[in-house]
Design a protein around this nucleic acid. Sequence first.
DNA 1: AAATGCAATATGCAACTTGCTAATTAATGA
DNA 2: TCATTAATTAGCAAGTTGCATATTGCATTT
Lengths: 219, 219
Amino acid sequence: MQLQIIATVDAVILTIDGGALKVVLHERPNDPFQGMAALPGGYIREDEDKNAEDAMRRVLSDKAGLSGFYLEQLATYSGPDRDPRGWSISVAYLALVPADQLKIDKSKAALFPVDDLPALPFDHGRILHDAVQRLRGKGAYSTLPASLLSKTFTLSEMHAAYEVALGMQIDASSFRRKVLALNILKDRAEMRQDGNKRPAKTYALKEGVTTFNRTLGAT
Amino acid sequence: MQLQIIATVDAVILTIDGGALKVVLHERPNDPFQGMAALPGGYIREDEDKNAEDAMRRVLSDKAGLSGFYLEQLATYSGPDRDPRGWSISVAYLALVPADQLKIDKSKAALFPVDDLPALPFDHGRILHDAVQRLRGKGAYSTLPASLLSKTFTLSEMHAAYEVALGMQIDASSFRRKVLALNILKDRAEMRQDGNKRPAKTYALKEGVTTFNRTLGAT
DNA sequence: AAATGCAATATGCAACTTGCTAATTAATGA
DNA sequence: TCATTAATTAGCAAGTTGCATATTGCATTT
């Protein structure tokens, strides 16, 4: 009653690098599409994975040495044609990783700006597009963009992260006022960031806060 | 390298009935859990379904005679234990259907208020919970709740739908003002709803409008 | 025919938010 | 000490929002 089905997971790993939103693409080691840059992914292993998310974490840990980052399920893509090997179903995830936590093996992977991408295999173009949509949509009224920063950050860094993640300019003054009024941050010790100018106070996200009613951007 | 995997789709069909948000549960005709009320669902058929959504529409059409309603992918649930038959993966969907478009075969299915549910098989309890969360979260700044109304509706009906969908009271006066300012509705002919009182103007959603920046509820 | 009941719809307003622009503050280096 | 630059505050006009109070249009009742 049920034929063989190919079940996989794929990750859209986003980060901020050089003031731009970038995605991690791996060079595929095997067929199909051997040698092409593609979203990192792998098979779900029924014998060892507790579920799809578990499989995704295993793959990300193995392929990219990643752990302790923000991960949310994006959507599931399926059909007979998306993978030349046959009817397949892929659960895609959105991962947000601070740049300094990404250690890329340059012989196998690289960062690409999300608005200047090479042709991608399978339906990875669509998946990537959906991932950016999700970040932009949900990011405006949630702490998602802050997941692209290290645990501790300044308001200027947070402001910049939101601008990059949402792909729009946000008035710095209003941003500070709104963020502070939302009461989603806790203070930390201070530090000067750029080395020369006035030092900025540092903050961290309060636990459990993820979404709010007012928007931090958009219009 | 890949064992047999069970691939299914499940639907959380929500509607407004008697002023409450309700879900359609089907009585399972076969094992496992034969006879229990559960989310309607079925196998993905690789030989005839173009993808998971296609399978979902086929199932809903066959089991409930539904077509032309709002359907969005919710999330995918997987693991070795959720289905006693083995490692399974289920793509869940959220369907929003106007009450008058639902024709339930009472010998096979029934409506249950989402805040007073029977015990559910598999992980259907969690899926249902996630579906309601989605409606409440996304509904505050989107036209989702209006999908629970017929094509044409009055502002009072729309207001009531948002209150039920979001599970909170919303000031009627502000609601009207905001909705009209958002410019997401187009006028229709008028009609009196309750028969005796002042007749209300009717509206329909403009095509393509789905989300907006201001919130229609929440705080 | 006028008064009444009710929901639909509109008005008024004080309190709050928001986008801008213009200060002020804290380091650094000349 | 002063100029420079980023961090952080202030000030304000314009726009929004919640809430309370009218008004309006039918149907039914006096």
